[in-house]
Design a protein around this nucleic acid. Sequence first.
DNA 1: CGCGTGAGTTGACTAAAATCAAGAGACGCA
DNA 2: TGCGTCTCTTGATTTTAGTCAACTCACGCG
Lengths: 255, 255
Amino acid sequence: MRPTDTPKVRALPMFASVSDDTSNRVTGTAYLQRFPANTTLLLEGDPVDFLYVLLEGQVELQGTWKDKETTLTILRPVSTFILAAVVLDADALMSARTLERCEILMISGDAIRQNMAEDAAFAVAISRELSGCYRGLVRTIKNQKLRGGVERLANYLLTLRAKSGGGENIHLPHEKRVLAALLGMTPENLSRAFATLGGYGVEVNGADVRLGKLRDLERLARPDPLIDNYAPRAPLLAEADAEIWSTEHQRAGAA
Amino acid sequence: MRPTDTPKVRALPMFASVSDDTSNRVTGTAYLQRFPANTTLLLEGDPVDFLYVLLEGQVELQGTWKDKETTLTILRPVSTFILAAVVLDADALMSARTLERCEILMISGDAIRQNMAEDAAFAVAISRELSGCYRGLVRTIKNQKLRGGVERLANYLLTLRAKSGGGENIHLPHEKRVLAALLGMTPENLSRAFATLGGYGVEVNGADVRLGKLRDLERLARPDPLIDNYAPRAPLLAEADAEIWSTEHQRAGAA
DNA sequence: CGCGTGAGTTGACTAAAATCAAGAGACGCA
DNA sequence: TGCGTCTCTTGATTTTAGTCAACTCACGCG
């Protein structure tokens, strides 16, 4: 498996404003891999040899300490991950695990670093990608520390709505236990949070959710552009704001 | 005030492996500014025109939502901040405020971006700096979500000890209320946490702390290289690991 | 010297989230 | 069809952190 030029890869903001030359040199070293669900791609503390690009499926990034575990983010296509470790040629600070069957492009870390050194445009593209990731984490921390569980859920639902077109019906993209982890709470508490939001017009039916009283929900959630990334989903080549594109921001409330 | 070439600036990893040429072009646009304590340098949501480099003093980065406030990090010299916003030419996601009298170098964002585009080595240096910041945030989140208040304090004390040479006596570099904010708890709870650590040989006397039973404290704290950054303090030009140097990591347990 | 201010501590109380336990429903598979 | 597994939910309980209030102490200042 060795695609030099998937359209999806070319569409990556990482390569958008980079010469074909560099682009080819970098992707030339890449391997496309398929992984089954629930596979650990990378373990905390491991040295990182590849930059990963998620093309299909879902990947969870998690951290561990003393048999406790926390979800840092859940990625959806198209996203890169562990870029920072690649740039520094350092060990991974978090583990990566597939949540479903995934299609992942693996790009040699050496190639990344070398081409950055030789092509300023590419290095700039990487910087922009990294900056977006950084800002995604800042949003995550603010979301986590400033809001309570119910508020996080409310905002998650609102940004999910925004990203999926704005109707009053939305569809949860994850199992509820995964959503709970993403929102930094237990499945039990997520259940209760949904129950609480019932009072604000939120009706849940499996993975389908109707936001009845949008106004009420918004008054509770108080969405904030400095926490929630309301970027529309994938208007290919949004150009102006790399952040829209970058790694950690596809998911809703927590990024 | 317009120093083209402070030694401190030259010592920045950001410029370490960059040509004098680029280095001069970038710092040529810089202004050295002094600020009194408790001054807001930058407000959440503001457009960012400068990269800030803290040369003297302490700066707190904080986030706000609905009249709640959280401290994201406290910077000590030498550190850059809001680099990500500069790279993307985007609005700040967090506010910056001086905790004491500060000496800060302000570098034009335009100059940064332009020189990145023209000098690959500089762009790489920025990428490494950003990567370090990113990883610092990952550590912060793991510290926050995986550990309880007492554990965070215990680890903070241990990494502070490591950074200040390893004796059994350490000196807290912040007021306790600031430390509390940094560790993500209230001053009241910090007090109680110190009281709890009394059982582990921790004796507090104002800002002076003695770690009596190091072994016990370590068994409680379970420090982890994937959360706590035990980098020694400032062996100028550590080279190998840019992370040691970069922005958010000077502080102990939370980064 | 006396006083006001603010940091730090301590205790009682409240709020929020995790944990424990049990049960309902969906799904895959023999 | 029946069984086991797993998700999700609900309730009771515990743990943890935040809030409110009072008090001490050190410091600066008139």
